[in-house]
Design a protein around this nucleic acid. Structure first.
Length: 640
RNA sequence: GCCGACGUAGCUCAGAGGUAGAGCAGGUCACUUGUAAUGACCAGGUCGUCCGUUCGAAUCGGACCGUCGGCUCCA
């Protein structure tokens, strides 16, 4: 009998009879491996465990604890869900159902949308399919056969997918079947439905076929699956944890901000605590910009529409608001760049002036569609820590490096140390020549490399005026938030015809970089609130100290020390209510105030305060002056 | 904008074709308290808005406003 030589990842080799399956080899290596195996990699290609091995190959067993293995596991769960749906709703047409970051989904074309109650029924049906332990089998067929199958089930969506595959040059179409359910699928899959142990369906939502809003709306069911129940429970617990620190909930509880239905959606009202938090963040931001050679500018909210025609926003149908002033059309600024360009253009600039870095806390308005608004994360009026850098092409990479380093400094001060970085290239709907785009992409890539940043290319994701770097920041729960963006612009300088005089006495075109670090201040505050669950570090706490007089006799003393603390720029409140100390402590704890000073007759007589720290609990009495010195020092530390 | 769900007191929520309820928050009074809720009393709602169906609508239908989960888009 013919033998095949298998090389395993640890370089060891084994001899097996030709035709032995990957599953059998896993079994030979060990029962634990066989149990966790979901697929195999043969010469780097991921295939089903049931694949027989004919030649000498490199083989790796893919287990469910790898990212790839988990994806396969969840993808199989999606198939089981689709099967369950079709069993319960024979009219439903399955379309596409992939694994995603935290689970999987499947989109169905149905006449009636699914209800929450349907999810329970579908889960029960899935349990049956899993209990039946139906093997997943692969079948490679011709496009014609595949088409015939899905035409028979009247599924135009699958037929469309097959036609696309054929266009891409596929000769073979793979179908996966378990029980009676057949799906168009690249695979691979688990050996059988029984391999799925823990899953849960989470929600149902509308989604456009292929993500295009001109296409029909499908019904999407989201679910998740984990190799064991405990992992699933942990995941569900994380969802609850995220809910508990939702910035919209905390925004109300901590009296930070609100929205008013009667005043307009997506427009934020900052209450005293929120306005203080915002001010602390923006004061810090301004200071850091000035340190790095930026200059403050300020531009109006209303600019004649002719400027928006020059900038191209008008022609791009940018979602902005317009108004009319004495018969002239004005646009409410959705971006700060044209204003900064006007200032740049107000004088003849020399190469000796460059780089010029204009910074503005620029408040902009954008007409975001009603369905996308989301707390502070997606609003219609927001403020950016926006700057535009005008520089020579030679200075470009250094300037971008400067921005990246600045962004890292800022974010880490606020407690964000992990990032995911994208470099976005030319979209279909774009201005500027290919050559300009290439230059920009090169400069951005060079800067990222100089900063040793790992990044991924996001094809066609650039702004219409230039390529960009998008940095997403990771929070305490591992969630990603939109963060800094650095956008090259070879286009706007052209349109506004801005120049500088070079050493040769000739006019040259400067490069323009748009960049935000915190990005939208509102959005950043949302991320900040959720990252620390409303428990702000001392330097950012809207109220740093609350003084709790034990009796009415102690209120005057409390007011006195409050005055002294305020003179040191500390943010202090006195709780003068006639309530018990316990009740006052509870209130202050719920407001997540970092320090409580309990003052009764004893403290008053001795000039002391009894300190209770939110983090460390009761610290006992100490001289007031001593506390003030300590807390002043701590409040100055701008790091989390 | 699209699909679905939802909107009852400041907040969290119960109720439901016959005219609205709780807890917390708020106010008043009493208490003057030592490290996460003192007690009593009071006040508070044209049940998101408008239009319709009905003898009668908070309850049923429609439109609009807003919120939530997604799609899409984006700082």
């Amino acid at each position: 009998m013919a033998q095949s030589t298998i090389t395993l990842p640890d370089e060891s080799t084994m001899q097996v009879a030709a035709g032995t399956t990957a599953a059998e080899i896993a079994e030979t290596i060990g029962p634990a491996l066989a149990r966790d195996a979901v697929a195999a990699q043969i010469n780097g290609q991921t295939v089903d465990l049931s694949t027989p091995i004919g030649d000498d190959v490199e083989l790796a067993i893919v287990t469910v604890d790898s990212a790839e293995g988990l994806e396969i596991y969840r993808h199989s769960a999606a198939h089981v869900m689709a099967d369950a749906v079709v069993r319960l709703f024979p009219e439903a047409k399955p379309t596409i159902g992939p694994a995603i970051a935290d689970g999987f989904y499947y989109d169905f074309a149905v006449d009636e949308p699914f209800t929450e109650e349907d999810l329970t029924r579908i889960e029960a049906e899935m349990d049956k399919i899993i209990a039946a332990d139906l093997p997943f089998t692969r079948q490679d067929v011709s496009p014609a056969e595949a088409r015939a199958h899905f035409e028979q089930t009247d599924n135009a969506y699958k037929v469309e997918l097959i036609d696309e595959l054929v266009e891409e040059g596929e000769q073979n179409i793979s179908l996966y079947q378990h029980g009676d359910f057949v799906d168009l699928c690249r695979g691979p899959h688990l050996p059988a439905t029984g391999n799925i142990t823990a899953f849960k369906l989470l929600s149902v939502a509308g989604a456009y076929w292929r993500g295009d809003e001109s296409n029909p709306m499908l019904q999407r069911i989201y679910g998740t699956a984990y190799p064991d129940q405990k992992m699933l429970d942990d995941h569900l617990k994380r969802i609850d944890e995220a809910k508990a620190r939702d910035h919209r909930k905390l925004g109300r509880e901590l009296k930070l901000f609100s929205f008013f239905e009667e005043a307009g959606a997506g427009l934020v009202y900052y209450h005293p605590n929120g306005a203080m938090l915002r001010q602390l963040v923006t004061d810090f931001t301004i200071k850091e910009h000035l340190k790095r050679g930026y200059e403050l500018v300020r531009t109006p909210h209303l600019i004649k529409s002719t400027i928006w025609e020059i900038s191209g926003h008008a022609q791009q149908d940018y979602p902005m608001y317009y108004t009319d002033v004495e018969g002239q059309s004005y646009g409410i600024k959705p971006m700060n760049c044209p204003g900064h360009i006007l200032i740049y253009n107000s004088e003849t600039r020399s190469y000796r002036d460059l780089p010029i870095r204009y910074f503005e806390l620029g408040t902009v308005y954008r007409h975001e569609r009603s369905g996308v608004l989301h707390g502070l994360l997606r609003v219609r009026g927001f403020t950016q820590d926006d700057a535009h850098i005008f520089c020579t092409p030679e200075q470009l990479t250094d300037e971008i490096v400067g921005v990246i380093e600045f962004a890292q400094d800022m974010l880490s001060t606020f407690g964000f140390d992990e990032y995911e970085v994208l470099l976005a290239t030319k979209p279909d709907k774009a201005m500027g020549t290919d050559e300009m785009w290439e230059q920009g992409i090169e400069a951005l890539a060079a800067a990222l490399e100089e900063c040793n940043m790992d990044y991924q290319i996001a094809p066609k994701e650039g702004a219409f005026y230039g390529p960009k770097i998008d940095i997403a920041i990771k929070d305490a729960l591992g969630r990603l938030w939109d963060g800094p963006t650095i956008q090259c612009d070879f286009n706007m300088p052209e349109r506004f015809d801005i120049t500088y005089v070079g050493p040769d006495g000739q006019e040259h075109r400067p490069v323009m970089v748009h960049r935000v670090v915190l990005a939208g201040i509102e959005r950043f505050l949302g991320a900040l609130i959720e990252n620390c669950a409303g428990d702000f570090p001392l330097w950012l706490a809207p109220v740093q100290i609350r003084i709790l007089p034990i009796t009415d006799r102690n209120v005057t003393y409390a007011d006195e020390i409050a005055k002294k603390l305020r003179e040191e720029d500390l943010r202090v409140e006195v709780d003068g209510e006639s309530a018990t100390l316990q009740a006052k402590i509870r209130d202050a704890e719920l407001m997540k105030i970092p320090y409580m000073l309990v003052v009764g007759d004893r403290e008053q007589e001795s000039g002391q305060v009894a300190v209770r720290s939110r983090q460390e609990g009761d610290l006992g009495p100490q001289p007031f002056e001593e506390f003030m010195a300590t807390v002043c020092a701590k409040a100055r530390i701008q790091a989390t």
